[in-house]
Design a protein around this nucleic acid. Structure first.
Lengths: 193, 193, 193, 193
DNA sequence: AATGAATGAGTATTCATTCAT
DNA sequence: GATGAATGAATACTCATTCAT
């Protein structure tokens, strides 16, 4: 009967969790602060997840799944590896501008020792990267020696790290422009050629 | 007349700290676990550092300082940006092979919310990156538009992330070969051209 | 819908805190001993106070405030300084007989280096003592040279110290009788004349 | 062979101990701070005393013994209780002016739950107070009802508390004058009459 | 169903004491 | 004798989790 209310609460929990994890890391995101921000009782967080770790893990998986989905779409609709890479980097930059919390969230947890991408997702990512490489080889865009790992490193890790480096303002500014995006794409494609 | 300070203990504390931080992150490296592993009383950790944070910070700074030192040497003795980059990447690969814990340690703390590189070191890194770029421009190796940030991203962040990706065995293997090193150098230089 | 706060627990914490502070001093009243005695989890002590110091401070301030309140009432309703002093000493003796822990508690913390009466309360006490002196001068009960400090020493400190000396059984007995009270009043008033 | 050096060290330990106990209380006077201030190794403190508690206790006893000695002298050479009381209060005021640390030291430990005057000393004090009272009664200076405890309260406790109240600056100033001394004597004697 | 009162295992840190030198 | 390196039990405090209501 209270479906609508519940969904609102769950959504608020999700948002609050991401917000605090991004701001203070996993360790700094306490159940009580999340519950308070979400306007929900602490105990309520345990109705849908057995632990804080599970709550965060689920959020991480669904966020990664969304990106994997986009990469899959991109891959199916692209004629060249350059198209895939520039598309993927566009996805990252759009996320960074539209929902910066999300991309920071993934970045934080990718580097947190309490978390690991699930084996399924890892396998999935691996396969997609292999397909990306095959597309590049078929198209003669890249050398036959390019590995899926290298493609992943340049097309996923490097852009993510660049974006986070920038957002942290390590070199002064923290804005991300279209020109930045263009150059990240250029570097990434140049590197893999 | 009193006992002589047991340098072995101090060294064991250092090693145990790095080991646990690498394995479980800063939060997962408890004083009691470090002391137990080092074969030392808990209180002894406080003889040389005022807090756990200070202990880890000191270890981090000295590790980073060593790398900065090597980059500086490299920069002074190099005739081209390619030389600098391949030299730096060699440093990282050597660390990964000789003292893998060290490079993992830096990587973990670079991404931990409890830590930040000191302002001094950040500034120092920034200046070195600017010099690297100037060298490249003088030599006509790279476009004049290249920024220090981009050089940092490609010559430092990307190699570090690649090495850690590999060491975590994300794509199956976890060995690092000379061929890997050669290709990381190639990608990095290609990207910046 | 959640459990209702158990006021009994809070009261037991208060009592246990006072009991241990009285018996062993502030330093000897450990959180774990207080919690054990109160039949409460250690963490529960932090639900209402941010620290052990704050817990004890609050208890101290409220106890002192109660005494200040009584002195104020006394002052407003008294026609002579003798009336004020005998009233105040009666308050102390009543406390000593009815709730001896309370008066011991104040006495202990008055002399503990971790505690100080708040500036507000000190100022308040000072002002009340000044009024007491003025009343005495107006009534020609005391010499014009009497200071607020002297009044405080004789009407507050001396009785408190006497009561504590007795309760500790320094001279053998530890009971406090009406005759004792009468004599303390007599001494105090005689002294100030 | 090293007697002189030793005596110097022991004296410095005594001084440092008193200094820190007075400044920070017993709990705040750490062995390491005392040793550092005394220019002595920590372990050295255990050569003459089995524990920190014993070290402080011994200092307390010897300080109290000195005062008891003076009271005894006073009692033997005095013809009236007034003489004894004014002499004793003079002792306290002189200590407060000449060696304020000593009188503060006694005051701190008198109120610290870790310490108690030894049974011997307590008994001794009791007997002296009884003699004082007898002297007063013989001389017709005081009522026959005066107890040793009351004499102690007025001639020892009250002056000590007054002096400490003043030295803490509770009422503003923290100087002690001859006039103060005269008035304390006056109050004390008036009270007991 | 939802709350938040209550728990307690776990944490970093302190410091009197010991003992090898 | 004298040192101070090394110990470890004890402390205040935190926070994910449980469960009575």
């Amino acid at each position: 009967m209270a479906r609508i209310i519940d969904e609102g609460k769950i959504e608020r929990i999700r948002e609050a969790t991401i917000e605090f994890v991004v701001q203070n890391g996993y360790g700094g995101a306490s159940i009580s602060s999340i519950a308070r921000r979400a306007g929900v009782a602490e105990g309520y967080l345990y109705r849908f997840h057995r632990s804080k770790h599970e709550l965060v893990t689920e959020l991480l998986y669904s966020n990664i799944a969304r990106i994997i989905g986009k990469l899959e779409l991109l891959l199916n609709s692209s004629k060249s590896i350059s198209e895939v890479i520039s598309g993927l980097i566009e996805v990252f930059f759009n996320m960074a501008n539209d929902t910066p919390e999300q991309i920071k969230f993934i970045h934080v947890l990718m580097h947190d020792y309490n978390f690991q991408i699930s084996d399924d997702q890892r396998q999935h990512i691996k396969e997609l990267c292999e397909k990306v490489v095959q597309l590049g080889i078929l198209n003669n865009e890249i050398s036959m020696k390019l590995t899926a790992e290298e493609a992943y490193g340049m097309a996923v890790i490097y852009p993510l790290e660049f974006i986070n480096l920038r957002m942290k303002g390590f070199f002064g500014t923290s804005e991300l422009t279209g020109e930045d995006q263009r150059r990240v794409v250029e570097f990434s494609i140049n590197a893999l050629k």
